[in-house]
Protein backbone atom coordinates (compact mmCIF):
# COMPACT_ATOMS: atom_id res chain seq x y z
CA UNK A 1 0.00 0.00 0.00
CA UNK A 2 1.17 3.50 -0.77
CA UNK A 3 0.64 6.42 1.53
CA UNK A 4 1.59 10.00 0.75
CA UNK A 5 1.38 12.36 3.69
CA UNK A 6 1.65 16.15 3.44
CA UNK A 7 4.33 15.84 0.82
CA UNK A 8 6.21 19.02 -0.10
CA UNK A 9 9.10 19.47 -2.50
CA UNK A 10 10.77 22.79 -3.04
CA UNK A 11 13.62 23.50 -5.41
CA UNK A 12 16.12 26.24 -4.80
CA UNK A 13 17.10 27.98 -7.98
CA UNK A 14 19.65 30.73 -8.36
CA UNK A 15 18.09 33.84 -9.85
CA UNK A 16 19.71 34.11 -13.24
CA UNK A 17 20.24 37.32 -15.11
CA UNK A 18 20.16 37.51 -18.87
CA UNK A 19 23.13 37.67 -21.20
CA UNK A 20 26.80 37.59 -20.35
CA UNK A 21 26.49 40.25 -17.68
CA UNK A 22 23.75 38.28 -15.99
CA UNK A 23 25.77 35.07 -16.15
CA UNK A 24 28.72 36.71 -14.43
CA UNK A 25 26.41 38.18 -11.82
CA UNK A 26 24.85 34.74 -11.19
CA UNK A 27 28.30 33.32 -10.51
CA UNK A 28 28.79 35.63 -7.57
CA UNK A 29 25.28 36.07 -6.33
CA UNK A 30 23.80 34.00 -3.57
CA UNK A 31 20.23 34.98 -4.33
CA UNK A 32 17.88 32.08 -4.75
CA UNK A 33 14.25 31.79 -5.54
CA UNK A 34 12.27 28.94 -4.08
CA UNK A 35 9.99 27.07 -6.40
CA UNK A 36 7.43 24.77 -4.82
CA UNK A 37 6.89 21.88 -7.19
CA UNK A 38 4.73 19.78 -4.88
CA UNK A 39 2.72 21.58 -2.25
CA UNK A 40 1.36 19.57 0.64
CA UNK A 41 -0.31 16.65 -1.09
CA UNK A 42 -1.72 13.55 0.59
CA UNK A 43 -3.35 10.41 -0.74
CA UNK A 44 -3.53 6.66 -0.24
CA UNK A 45 -3.39 3.96 -2.86
CA UNK A 46 -4.45 0.40 -2.14
CA UNK A 47 -2.90 -2.77 -3.42
CA UNK A 48 -4.00 -3.70 -6.93
CA UNK A 49 -5.30 -0.26 -7.88
CA UNK A 50 -4.44 1.37 -11.19
CA UNK A 51 -4.27 5.09 -10.59
CA UNK A 52 -3.86 7.77 -13.22
CA UNK A 53 -1.81 10.68 -11.96
CA UNK A 54 -2.43 13.52 -14.32
CA UNK A 55 -1.78 17.18 -14.76
CA UNK A 56 -0.33 19.64 -17.24
CA UNK A 57 3.40 19.96 -17.90
CA UNK A 58 5.23 21.17 -14.82
CA UNK A 59 2.30 20.42 -12.51
CA UNK A 60 4.50 18.34 -10.23
CA UNK A 61 3.69 14.84 -11.47
CA UNK A 62 7.21 13.67 -12.19
CA UNK A 63 8.52 15.22 -8.99
CA UNK A 64 5.97 13.23 -6.97
CA UNK A 65 6.80 10.03 -8.84
CA UNK A 66 10.52 10.57 -8.24
CA UNK A 67 9.92 10.96 -4.52
CA UNK A 68 7.77 7.84 -4.52
CA UNK A 69 10.59 5.83 -6.15
CA UNK A 70 13.12 7.18 -3.69
CA UNK A 71 15.31 9.15 -6.05
CA UNK A 72 14.32 12.58 -4.73
CA UNK A 73 14.16 13.64 -1.11
CA UNK A 74 11.03 15.48 -0.05
CA UNK A 75 11.43 18.90 1.58
CA UNK A 76 8.86 17.82 4.16
CA UNK A 77 6.15 15.23 4.57
CA UNK A 78 6.53 11.56 3.79
CA UNK A 79 5.90 8.77 1.32
CA UNK A 80 5.37 5.27 2.64
CA UNK A 81 5.53 2.27 0.36
CA UNK A 82 4.45 -0.78 2.31
CA UNK A 83 5.50 1.07 5.44
CA UNK A 84 8.96 2.11 4.22
CA UNK A 85 10.15 5.55 3.16
CA UNK A 86 11.74 4.96 -0.25
CA UNK A 87 14.32 7.78 -0.10
CA UNK A 88 15.53 6.45 3.26
CA UNK A 89 15.40 2.74 2.51
CA UNK A 90 16.11 3.11 -1.19
CA UNK A 91 17.57 -0.33 -1.82
CA UNK A 92 14.92 -2.22 0.13
CA UNK A 93 12.08 -0.40 -1.57
CA UNK A 94 13.72 -0.66 -5.00
CA UNK A 95 13.51 -4.43 -4.81
CA UNK A 96 9.71 -4.16 -4.76
CA UNK A 97 9.05 -1.43 -7.26
CA UNK A 98 9.35 -1.15 -11.01
CA UNK A 99 9.81 2.15 -12.77
CA UNK A 100 9.50 3.26 -16.38
CA UNK A 101 10.40 6.80 -17.34
CA UNK A 102 9.20 7.32 -20.89
CA UNK A 103 12.09 9.66 -21.62
CA UNK A 104 14.85 7.45 -20.26
CA UNK A 105 15.86 3.84 -20.56
CA UNK A 106 17.11 1.46 -17.92
CA UNK A 107 18.54 -0.90 -20.51
CA UNK A 108 22.21 -1.03 -21.41
CA UNK A 109 22.59 0.75 -24.69
CA UNK A 110 25.37 -1.24 -26.32
CA UNK A 111 24.51 -4.80 -25.40
CA UNK A 112 21.85 -7.15 -26.70
CA UNK A 113 18.46 -6.78 -25.08
CA UNK A 114 18.55 -10.31 -23.69
CA UNK A 115 21.87 -9.50 -21.97
CA UNK A 116 20.27 -6.51 -20.24
CA UNK A 117 17.61 -8.83 -18.88
CA UNK A 118 20.25 -11.24 -17.65
CA UNK A 119 21.97 -8.39 -15.80
CA UNK A 120 18.64 -7.38 -14.24
CA UNK A 121 18.06 -11.00 -13.26
CA UNK A 122 21.27 -10.85 -11.21
CA UNK A 123 20.62 -7.40 -9.79
CA UNK A 124 17.18 -8.36 -8.51
CA UNK A 125 18.29 -11.87 -7.58
CA UNK A 126 15.54 -13.52 -9.60
CA UNK A 127 15.54 -17.31 -9.53
CA UNK A 128 15.89 -19.25 -12.78
CA UNK A 129 12.30 -20.54 -12.67
CA UNK A 130 10.79 -17.13 -11.95
CA UNK A 131 12.92 -15.60 -14.66
CA UNK A 132 11.75 -18.11 -17.22
CA UNK A 133 8.11 -17.82 -16.24
CA UNK A 134 8.22 -14.02 -16.26
CA UNK A 135 10.07 -13.86 -19.59
CA UNK A 136 7.52 -16.16 -21.22
CA UNK A 137 4.67 -14.06 -19.87
CA UNK A 138 6.24 -10.76 -20.96
CA UNK A 139 7.13 -12.12 -24.36
CA UNK A 140 3.54 -13.20 -24.80
CA UNK A 141 2.00 -9.84 -23.92
CA UNK A 142 4.68 -7.54 -25.33
CA UNK A 143 6.06 -9.57 -28.22
CA UNK A 144 9.73 -9.27 -27.30
CA UNK A 145 11.17 -12.24 -29.12
CA UNK A 146 11.40 -10.47 -32.47
CA UNK A 147 14.10 -8.10 -31.18
CA UNK A 148 15.50 -9.91 -28.15
CA UNK A 149 18.88 -10.42 -29.79
CA UNK A 150 19.35 -6.87 -31.02
CA UNK A 151 21.49 -4.27 -29.24
CA UNK A 152 19.21 -1.78 -27.50
CA UNK A 153 20.48 1.16 -29.53
CA UNK A 154 19.08 -0.40 -32.72
CA UNK A 155 15.52 -0.71 -31.37
CA UNK A 156 12.72 1.57 -32.55
CA UNK A 157 11.03 3.75 -29.95
CA UNK A 158 8.05 1.40 -29.74
CA UNK A 159 10.26 -1.64 -29.32
CA UNK A 160 12.36 0.13 -26.73
CA UNK A 161 9.33 1.12 -24.69
CA UNK A 162 8.06 -2.45 -24.74
CA UNK A 163 11.52 -3.65 -23.75
CA UNK A 164 11.71 -1.08 -20.95
CA UNK A 165 8.30 -2.02 -19.63
CA UNK A 166 9.35 -5.67 -19.59
CA UNK A 167 12.55 -4.69 -17.76
CA UNK A 168 10.54 -2.95 -15.06
CA UNK A 169 8.29 -6.00 -14.60
CA UNK A 170 10.91 -8.71 -14.63
CA UNK A 171 11.26 -8.88 -10.86
CA UNK A 172 7.48 -8.87 -10.35
CA UNK A 173 7.30 -5.58 -8.47
CA UNK A 174 4.42 -4.93 -6.11
CA UNK A 175 4.23 -1.35 -7.30
CA UNK A 176 4.81 -0.13 -10.82
CA UNK A 177 5.45 3.54 -11.58
CA UNK A 178 4.96 4.59 -15.17
CA UNK A 179 5.96 8.11 -16.09
CA UNK A 180 4.49 8.79 -19.52
CA UNK A 181 4.91 5.25 -20.81
CA UNK A 182 3.12 5.84 -24.12
CA UNK A 183 4.75 9.12 -25.09
CA UNK A 184 5.45 9.30 -28.81
CA UNK A 185 4.12 5.82 -29.59
CA UNK A 186 1.72 4.77 -32.32
CA UNK A 187 -1.74 3.44 -31.55
CA UNK A 188 -0.86 -0.23 -31.97
CA UNK A 189 2.11 -0.09 -29.59
CA UNK A 190 0.07 1.94 -27.12
CA UNK A 191 -2.55 -0.79 -27.12
CA UNK A 192 0.08 -3.47 -26.54
CA UNK A 193 1.51 -1.53 -23.62
CA UNK A 194 -1.93 -1.02 -22.10
CA UNK A 195 -2.78 -4.69 -22.52
CA UNK A 196 0.44 -5.69 -20.76
CA UNK A 197 -0.24 -3.34 -17.84
CA UNK A 198 -3.79 -4.68 -17.49
CA UNK A 199 -2.64 -8.27 -17.73
CA UNK A 200 0.11 -7.76 -15.14
CA UNK A 201 -2.34 -6.06 -12.80
CA UNK A 202 -4.81 -8.90 -13.16
CA UNK A 203 -2.31 -11.72 -12.84
CA UNK A 204 -0.05 -10.43 -10.06
CA UNK A 205 -2.28 -7.77 -8.47
CA UNK A 206 0.38 -5.16 -9.21
CA UNK A 207 -0.40 -1.64 -8.05
CA UNK A 208 0.13 0.79 -10.91
CA UNK A 209 0.65 4.54 -10.79
CA UNK A 210 0.65 6.11 -14.19
CA UNK A 211 1.26 9.62 -15.43
CA UNK A 212 0.21 10.42 -18.93
CA UNK A 213 -1.05 13.10 -21.27
CA UNK A 214 -2.92 10.51 -23.28
CA UNK A 215 -6.50 10.40 -22.10
CA UNK A 216 -7.08 7.09 -23.83
CA UNK A 217 -4.55 5.57 -21.42
CA UNK A 218 -6.57 6.86 -18.52
CA UNK A 219 -9.93 5.78 -19.90
CA UNK A 220 -8.62 2.31 -20.73
CA UNK A 221 -6.66 1.60 -17.60
CA UNK A 222 -7.51 3.65 -14.57
CA UNK A 223 -10.32 3.16 -12.14
CA UNK A 224 -9.20 6.18 -10.20
CA UNK A 225 -7.52 9.42 -11.12
CA UNK A 226 -5.64 12.02 -9.19
CA UNK A 227 -5.32 15.39 -10.86
CA UNK A 228 -2.54 17.69 -9.79
CA UNK A 229 -2.05 21.30 -10.77
CA UNK A 230 0.67 23.66 -9.60
CA UNK A 231 1.61 21.22 -6.88
CA UNK A 232 -1.91 20.85 -5.47
CA UNK A 233 -4.27 17.95 -5.83
CA UNK A 234 -7.43 19.31 -7.43
CA UNK A 235 -9.25 16.02 -7.84
CA UNK A 236 -8.88 12.54 -6.39
CA UNK A 237 -11.50 9.94 -7.11
CA UNK A 238 -13.47 7.86 -9.46
CA UNK A 239 -13.30 8.41 -13.18
CA UNK A 240 -17.13 8.49 -13.33
CA UNK A 241 -17.50 10.87 -10.42
CA UNK A 242 -15.32 13.47 -12.01
CA UNK A 243 -18.22 14.33 -14.26
CA UNK A 244 -20.51 14.82 -11.31
CA UNK A 245 -18.05 17.11 -9.69
CA UNK A 246 -17.03 19.19 -12.63
CA UNK A 247 -20.22 18.98 -14.65
CA UNK A 248 -21.66 16.67 -17.26
CA UNK A 249 -21.12 19.00 -20.14
CA UNK A 250 -22.93 18.39 -23.43
CA UNK A 251 -22.45 19.98 -26.76
CA UNK A 252 -25.24 19.82 -29.30
CA UNK A 253 -24.41 20.87 -32.83
CA UNK A 254 -27.40 21.54 -35.06
CA UNK A 255 -27.31 22.08 -38.78
CA UNK A 256 -30.08 24.56 -39.69
CA UNK A 257 -32.34 24.48 -42.72
CA UNK A 258 -32.93 28.27 -42.74
CA UNK A 259 -30.54 30.91 -41.53
CA UNK A 260 -31.22 32.62 -38.21
CA UNK A 261 -30.56 36.28 -37.54
CA UNK A 262 -29.69 35.89 -33.87
CA UNK A 263 -29.97 33.49 -30.95
CA UNK A 264 -32.09 35.95 -28.96
CA UNK A 265 -35.22 33.95 -29.57
CA UNK A 266 -34.09 31.15 -27.24
CA UNK A 267 -34.93 31.12 -23.60
CA UNK A 268 -31.51 31.60 -21.93
CA UNK A 269 -32.08 29.38 -18.88
CA UNK A 270 -30.40 32.04 -16.79
CA UNK A 271 -26.97 31.71 -18.39
CA UNK A 272 -26.80 27.96 -17.88
CA UNK A 273 -27.01 27.36 -21.60
CA UNK A 274 -24.85 29.11 -24.18
CA UNK A 275 -25.63 29.37 -27.89
CA UNK A 276 -23.23 30.18 -30.67
CA UNK A 277 -24.32 30.69 -34.21
CA UNK A 278 -22.08 30.29 -37.22
CA UNK A 279 -24.02 30.64 -40.49
CA UNK A 280 -26.14 27.51 -40.65
CA UNK A 281 -24.52 25.86 -37.66
CA UNK A 282 -25.87 26.35 -34.18
CA UNK A 283 -23.92 25.09 -31.18
CA UNK A 284 -25.61 24.66 -27.82
CA UNK A 285 -23.53 24.09 -24.68
CA UNK A 286 -24.93 23.19 -21.30
CA UNK A 287 -24.39 21.17 -18.17
CA UNK A 288 -26.85 18.29 -18.10
CA UNK A 289 -26.71 18.24 -14.32
CA UNK A 290 -27.94 21.81 -14.03
CA UNK A 291 -30.58 22.03 -16.69
CA UNK A 292 -33.01 19.52 -18.06
CA UNK A 293 -31.90 18.16 -21.42
CA UNK A 294 -35.46 17.79 -22.69
CA UNK A 295 -36.42 21.36 -21.80
CA UNK A 296 -33.40 22.80 -23.56
CA UNK A 297 -34.02 20.81 -26.69
CA UNK A 298 -37.74 21.57 -26.71
CA UNK A 299 -37.03 25.23 -26.38
CA UNK A 300 -34.51 25.23 -29.22
CA UNK A 301 -36.50 23.01 -31.58
CA UNK A 302 -39.67 25.13 -31.36
CA UNK A 303 -37.76 28.04 -32.91
CA UNK A 304 -35.87 26.38 -35.74
CA UNK A 305 -36.03 23.92 -38.62
CA UNK A 306 -33.15 21.53 -38.48
CA UNK A 307 -31.41 19.35 -41.02
CA UNK A 308 -29.08 17.36 -38.77
CA UNK A 309 -28.01 17.16 -35.15
CA UNK A 310 -24.99 15.81 -33.25
CA UNK A 311 -24.73 15.36 -29.50
CA UNK A 312 -21.33 15.12 -27.87
CA UNK A 313 -20.53 14.13 -24.31
CA UNK A 314 -17.50 15.73 -22.76
CA UNK A 315 -14.27 13.70 -22.86
CA UNK A 316 -12.06 13.40 -19.83
CA UNK A 317 -9.54 15.59 -21.58
CA UNK A 318 -12.05 18.42 -21.78
CA UNK A 319 -12.96 17.94 -18.14
CA UNK A 320 -9.33 18.38 -17.20
CA UNK A 321 -9.14 21.46 -19.40
CA UNK A 322 -12.23 22.81 -17.66
CA UNK A 323 -10.62 22.22 -14.29
CA UNK A 324 -7.49 24.06 -15.34
CA UNK A 325 -9.58 26.96 -16.59
CA UNK A 326 -11.50 27.10 -13.33
CA UNK A 327 -8.31 27.01 -11.30
CA UNK A 328 -6.84 29.78 -13.38
CA UNK A 329 -9.89 31.98 -12.99
CA UNK A 330 -10.02 31.41 -9.27
CA UNK A 331 -6.29 31.83 -8.88
Amino acid sequence: MIEVKNLVKQFKKPIRGEGIKGMVKTLFSTKHEIKTAVDNISFKINEGEIVGYIGSNGAGKSTTIKMMCGILNPTSGAVLINGLEPYKKRRQVAQNIGVVFGQKTQLWWDIQLIESYKVLKEIYEISDEDYKERMDFLDEVLGLSEFLNQPVRTLSLGQRMRADLAASLLHNPKVLFLDEPTIGLDVLVKEKIRAAIKEMNKKYNTTVILTTHDMADIENLCSRIIIIDEGHIIYDGDLLNIKNKFGDLRTVTIELRDSLDSTDCFNTFGGNVTYTLNNLELTVNFDALKVNFEEVMNNVLTHIHMKDMKIKEISIEEVVREIYKKEEMEG
Binding site: K66, C69, G70, I71, R90, R91, Q92, A94, Q95, I97, V99, F101, K104, T105, Q106, I123, Y124
Partner: peptide
Protein backbone atom coordinates in the same frame (compact mmCIF):
# COMPACT_ATOMS: atom_id res chain seq x y z
CA UNK B 1 21.80 13.57 -18.55
CA UNK B 2 19.61 12.49 -15.64
CA UNK B 3 20.41 8.82 -16.18
CA UNK B 4 21.29 8.62 -12.49
CA UNK B 5 17.56 8.12 -11.87
CA UNK B 6 17.81 4.74 -13.56
CA UNK B 7 20.74 3.77 -11.32
CA UNK B 8 18.95 4.82 -8.16
CA UNK B 9 15.80 2.81 -8.86
CA UNK B 10 17.78 -0.42 -8.70
CA UNK B 11 18.28 -2.26 -5.43
CA UNK B 12 22.03 -1.82 -5.45
CA UNK B 13 24.46 0.37 -3.59
Amino acid sequence: NGQIAMSLIKPIS
